[in-house]
Design a protein around this nucleic acid. Structure first.
Length: 869
RNA sequence: GCCGGGGUGGUGAAAUUGGUAGACACAAGGGACUUAAAAUCCCUCGGCCGCAAGGCUGUACGGGUUCGAUUCCCGUCCCCGGCACCA
């Protein structure tokens, strides 16, 4: 055994052995309970970042822990390989996205291996390979057949200078990131997946996911956004025709307070009104500027213009003017809203700005609504009742809506309706590096699906995008084809699929067929497959809505197509917090934005040590400090874990990651603390080395131990008990600190006391097994060096012994009026009356009671006594 | 703006979900060992008062419930994530 801890050597040796014995290859075994542990697969951006290290360490700790607990564990890995960054890199370096991606995969795979993760590499997949994305295309065709996939127009960000569609990420404050040009909205055709058909089930089956965090389920429920309301119409006459202006509202009880209507700029009524109103036409044009992002739309200044068209209130028959409002969205509901300024903040602001009438129609019992108090009354729909509303006066929310909906229905001008916030999933992307949509455009037959036997539609891998649209449009060899229907020359669709499609089903692809390699004659296995669903899914909280919702949707579609028999893909979910770091940026001359890595700047701090700004090391000019934010390639604030691994080894990196913060919390990166983790691992090695002879002798535990040693042993087992509790909660930071406490206890145990060798041997065996999932290499090496066994991961998980935990006396905290005043020792299991008597007799109790009698005595067994005087 | 989460020493955090606030570490300061450095070991470490024993105060801020609140309730401020074309 080596005297010093040499992480590089022992890690290399352990990894080589695991690889040569196939230690992490998983195969079906009916004798053991299965544990499919899956971490979200990475986008191959170049090198691993700290978020990956955190994510995969959590997954590996869980995998190794379950393996020691006797489970048959599968932990696979793959690559979410299509995406925008590859195209950006191509523009910068003139390298095809495919080559860039494959190079990155090779490098990152090496990094993952050097971290010692127990991954089954034989099942590796990459979504940019035709044998994977073929099945995207195949299921898309099934969806077309079922009417789940369909075509309609979509609104996109358009850069008028580059003449290209921009991703939301490429729009910075309403301008194109490369050109600085004001972004415009543009309508183009695209394919949609009807996720709204599954809205009800996606919402209700959240209740069947007890292993998901409440916050994620709540976010999904709010995103799906089921609301009950009333859809109704305002009749009007225009160009001699009778028409209806449909709107939807969740607050039909305020219908008598309507003082105007507002329609989206894209609404047909707006277009009609603009025909002979150049001012309005100009305003509608102005509304086309800006991005399509929800956050931008919600925070922009509310503007409007009257159309001069009046509609008739369906109940009062009053004339109501129609306005065009930039805050009304064509994609939501009807693209038109009723406006009740008295009881809606947005309508209120709009009415104030343009001098429109405000008519309060809801009041709260006992409150004066002659002032603007009625605005408050709106907030709590359960307290208000109708006023100023004719026959509806006095009705509360539910009764008012019932009565109003009934009256509207009688006039055939509306009814109650369930409304979803969820919108259908637009999957068309005008980008090259993605899965081709399997459609052929024929002049006579229109859009024709590619027949199954012509799949996959293979993406050429040698294109280099230049920023001016999709390079596939210049690839005649890709474009030219024949129509499957009529056989005439035709053109291929060049749009590719949203990369969320790729990641919506990869979890099921790792385990198609028996054995370790994927079968290629089918997309996924049916419900008789061994591994699905995933037992534990781990990934960033940033995926709480989109990726997880799309995956749930995709699973349900696969079920309805008859591919699988399970309803939900992920039984348990752990959402890890993000790893954050400082962000530095600077405006470019063109109005774009340029980011700087933390190592490229010098920090400027105030007296309190707070960061106020920074300067660029290269040119000495100031850069803007943008606070902390998620580590991302685009913001250039990632930290490369490679240096960490090379200097200290994988175990130190893993231990530090687990120790620094609980998995679900955000982690603000700092370089300090890593040294401490390394020091701890050195101390473990040193203890093992010093105790090697005692442990190798396999000493038997004496029948009884003297006090100091019995205390050490009790502390070890107590700490183990707590650590096992924390592990079940997946709170790994306190498991790591438990390991540190154990080492502290072992180090301070008196070596000359009888039985020390037995306590040391037992305690160290507990410590090594507890720590093995977190720092597998060093624990594996010590376990075999000290003769505990050949393979620590084949050893049983440690459990605390009742005999070691036994205690005669317990210490209770003594409080007087809730303030800590002392402590008392009582026999374990002492009756309450004895504890009360002992507390009252205590010197400190006498002093702070100041002669007053005890009004009440609270005894919390095993914890405290509180005397209320 | 809307939805979700968070705010505890100089720093990361802990507190068995209403019961000793700051475990375990990092950083800092002091000391031991050493020719020296590294490594290692020991001590101090929320704030205020005090030589000390000890006392008061303290979990973003303001209220409330309770014998007892970091934990529960109401309000305010700040930070992080998501907002449908980043993944």
């Amino acid at each position: 055994m080596q005297e010093k801890y040499h992480p590089t050597e022992i890690e290399k040796a352990a990894q080589n052995r695991w690889e040569s014995t196939g230690a992490h290859r998983a195969s079906e075994d009916a004798a053991k309970p299965k544990y499919y542990c899956l971490s979200m697969f990475p986008y191959p951006s170049g090198k691993l970042h700290m978020g990956h290290v955190r994510n995969y360490t959590i997954g590996d700790v869980l995998s190794r822990f379950h393996r020691m607990k006797g489970y048959n564990v599968l932990q696979p890995m793959g690559w979410d390989a299509f995406g925008l960054p590859a195209e950006n890199a191509a523009m910068q370096n003139h390298v095809p996205p495919a080559q860039w991606t494959y190079d990155n995969i090779a490098y990152m795979k090496k990094q993952l291996k050097s971290l010692g993760f127990a991954l089954d590499w034989e099942r590796e997949l990459a979504t940019c390979k035709p044998d994977y994305y073929k099945w995207n295309q195949w299921l898309f065709l099934r969806m077309l057949e079922k009417g789940v996939a369909y075509k309609k127009t979509q609104v996109v960000n358009w850069d008028p200078v580059d003449q290209t569609v921009l991703a939301n990420e490429q729009v910075i404050e309403g301008r194109g990131w490369r050109t600085g040009a004001l972004v415009e909205k543009r309508e183009i055709p695209g394919y949609y997946l009807a996720i709204t058909k599954y809205a009800d089930e996606l919402l209700s089956s959240l209740d069947k996911l007890p292993g998901w965090p409440e916050r994620v389920k709540l976010m999904q429920a709010n995103w799906i956004g089921k609301s009950y309301g009333v859809r109704f119409a305002f009749p009007y006459e225009l160009d001699g025709r009778k028409e209806l202006l449909w709107v939807f509202t969740t607050r039909a009880d305020t219908i008598m307070g309507v003082t105007f209507c507002a329609v989206a700029a894209e609404h047909p009524l707006a277009a009609r009104a603009a025909r002979d109103n150049p001012q309005l036409a100009a305003f509608i044009d102005e509304c086309k500027h800006g991005s399509v992002m929800e956050a931008d739309l919600a925070t922009m200044e509310k503007k409007g213009m009257p159309t001069g068209i009046f509609v008739e209130h369906p109940l009062t028959h009053e004339k109501v003017e129609v306005w065009v409002g930039n805050y009304v969205l064509m994609g939501y509901g009807e693209g038109a809203v009723m406006a009740v300024p008295a009881h809606d903040e947005r309508d209120f602001g709009f009415a104030k700005k343009y001098g429109l009438p405000i008519k309060p129609v809801i009041a709260i019992e006992g409150e004066d609504y002659s002032t603007e108090a009625w605005r408050e009354s709106y907030a709590d729909k359960n307290r208000g009742f109708c006023v100023n509303s004719g026959k509806y006066d006095g009705l509360a929310y539910d009764a008012a809506i019932d009565a109003i909906a009934t009256d509207l229905k009688a006039k055939e001008l509306g009814d109650k309706q369930v409304q979803w916030r969820l919108r259908d999933w637009g999957i068309s992307r005008q980008r090259y590096w993605g899965c081709p949509i399997p459609i052929i455009h024929c002049e006579s037959c229109g859009s024709v699906p590619v027949p199954d036997d012509q799949l996959p539609v293979v993406l050429p891998e040698d294109c280099v995008p230049d920023g001016s649209g999709n390079p596939l449009n210049k690839r005649e060899d890709f474009l030219a084809c024949t129509c499957p229907k009529c056989g005439k020359p035709a053109r291929r669709e060049t749009d590719t699929m949203d990369t969320f499609v790729d990641s919506s089903w990869y979890y099921a692809r790792y385990c198609v067929g028996a054995g370790t390699r994927q079968a290629n004659d089918r997309m996924v296995d049916d419900g008789t497959g061994y591994w699905m669903p995933v037992d534990q899914y781990i990934g960033g909280i940033e995926h709480a809505i989109l990726h997880l919702l799309y995956s749930r949707f995709w699973t349900k579609v696969m079920r309805d197509v008859g591919l699988v028999s399970y309803d939900e893909p992920f039984a348990n979910l752990l959402t890890q917090g993000m790893v954050l770091n400082h962000i530095f940026s600077r405006r470019t001359d063109k109005g774009g934005i340029e980011y700087f890595a933390p190592e490229e700047v010098d920090l400027v701090r105030d007296e309190g040590g707070q960061i106020t700004g920074a300067t660029c090391k290269a040119d000495g000019r100031p850069v803007d400090y943008g606070g902390v934010g998620t580590m991302s390639k685009s913001k250039r604030n990632g930290v490369d874990p490679q240096a960490l691994i090379e200097q200290y080894g994988a175990d130190t990196a893993r231990f530090f990651m687990m120790f620094a913060s609980p998995p679900e919390q955000t982690l603000e990166w700092s370089d300090s603390g890593v040294e401490g983790a390394y020091r701890f691992l050195r101390r473990i090695w040193a203890f093992g080395y010093a105790a090697r002879d005692a442990i190798a002798a396999r000493p038997a535990m004496p029948a009884s131990l003297a006090a100091p040693l019995a205390d050490v042993r009790r502390e070890l087992h107590l700490t183990l008990k707590q650590a096992n509790y924390d592990l079940a909660k997946m709170q790994f930071n306190t498991v790591a600190s438990a390991a540190m406490k154990m080492l502290n206890a072992l180090e301070k145990a008196p070596r000359d006391a009888a039985g020390w060798d037995a306590v040391a041997a037992e305690g160290f065996a507990i410590l090594l097994r507890l720590l093995a999932p977190i720092t597998p290499h060093v624990c594996d090496a010590l376990w075999s060096e000290l003769g505990y066994g050949d393979d620590i991961f084949a050893a049983a998980w440690p459990e605390p012994l009742a005999a070691a935990l036994e205690q005669d006396e317990v210490e209770l905290v003594l409080q007087v009026n809730g303030k800590l005043r002392g402590s008392l020792r009582v026999p374990a299991g002492a009756p309450k009356a004895d504890i009360e008597a002992a507390a009252l007799a205590h010197e400190a109790a006498q002093k702070y009671m100041e002669g007053k009698p005890a009004k009440k005595i609270v005894v919390v067994p095993g914890r405290l006594v509180n005397i209320v005087a």
